[in-house]
Design a protein around this nucleic acid. Sequence first.
DNA 1: GAGTTACGCTACGGCTCGTAGCGTAAGGGT
DNA 2: ACCCTTACGCTACGAGCCGTAGCGTAACTC
Lengths: 225, 225
Amino acid sequence: MSPSARRTGRPRSAEADRAILGATRAALVELGWAKLTLGDVAARAGVAKTTLYRRWASKCELVVDAVAAVFDEHLEAGDHGSLHADVEAAVIRLGALLERPETGTALMAVLAEAMHDESLRCRVRSAIVDRQKRLVTIGRERARLRGELPREEDPEASARNADLVFDAVAGTVLHRLMVSAEPVDPRWARDFTDLLLYGMTGADSGGAAAAGPAPDGAQKPAGSV
Amino acid sequence: MSPSARRTGRPRSAEADRAILGATRAALVELGWAKLTLGDVAARAGVAKTTLYRRWASKCELVVDAVAAVFDEHLEAGDHGSLHADVEAAVIRLGALLERPETGTALMAVLAEAMHDESLRCRVRSAIVDRQKRLVTIGRERARLRGELPREEDPEASARNADLVFDAVAGTVLHRLMVSAEPVDPRWARDFTDLLLYGMTGADSGGAAAAGPAPDGAQKPAGSV
DNA sequence: GAGTTACGCTACGGCTCGTAGCGTAAGGGT
DNA sequence: ACCCTTACGCTACGAGCCGTAGCGTAACTC
């Protein structure tokens, strides 16, 4: 089982892997989850159907890997100077990622199927979720060093809060795109970031100005740079 | 097509409808979306497969209706006395709804499929989303009357904010349950409500501390009843 | 070269799909 | 009561995809 156990024999074609995953994404966009057939994927990828079955046991696992590859390409947690800017950038990045027709569709379908398959759920978690969640932890740590967030003594409470923020960011963006079916444009990203940082009571309707929103987008409170 | 056009002939059995929708939910829990077959649903419901096809053109539409029926049973926007209590109650209610294995699974799968089917997306929207969204509008209106939220002159901005809050509430709860796979328990509901109302800077770790802006809603610590 | 593993190809039983055809049940119109 | 209309249950069917097995060949290690 160890990696060295596979030193002998003909190695698996790495190009076949890439072709299959790419074909999976392409087929997903054209056909959708329900009509996606593994035979079709194999044909698009130019490999035999049996080759595909030798590597992935089910449609779900194949799609998870296909999507995870896209997520991995867009993993970054750059420092944008402030908590507000970091959150806003993460929202934009995640939105752009999920706006790809292949990504959102596949993710939703896989998550639905993972409800009945514990191993699949673990696969999703390790391949996608945990990696994204790390970005939240990093961003919060940076904000704490900047003094934008209070120090937290209790590590367990800190983890709870990180999970909460992650669910809030990822879930809201996902819902915006998948359910409400509206784009994650810059204005929405800013509004949402304001909501996340300052809450409904402080961020609504342009914040301080109850008389009307300030279109010039004057930075709301003192928090930003 | 008018309702009066169907006055003649044998009427459709309302009981068959209920049996089919119930059987769909049951099968969904046991088998999941992928393995759910219409033939199986028909058998469980005690109706002929052809009867099922006469009413629903596809698996998606059937499941949408099956889930929408559950959502309809739990639509309420009771006044809990404060914006905080209203939001918290909505989170709990939505969480309980989506915690049912049939509901969450089905919703995710249907949403995934709706990416490729505009008519299906409309069906989901009118059957589920819009009705839930109305609750947000009602709650915000009540909060405005209480003075918990500022008045909003611009109806377009108000609608934008309502959509944002809806995406935040529904999306975060959905993500918590489907992706993070953790329960919506009372503590989480309270933490999330705090986040929504007072923001990351004000709600974290129970302190209005540090550098964050002081939320004008000073009732936060005493908020939990 | 011998051994090992992956690949492409073909073929197959099994299952589900969605539809068609038929006879029957349950209402409305006169 | 009688027809008309529509829905129902049942059976059967072609079509498509699934997932596997078997075979010969290709690629790489020792």
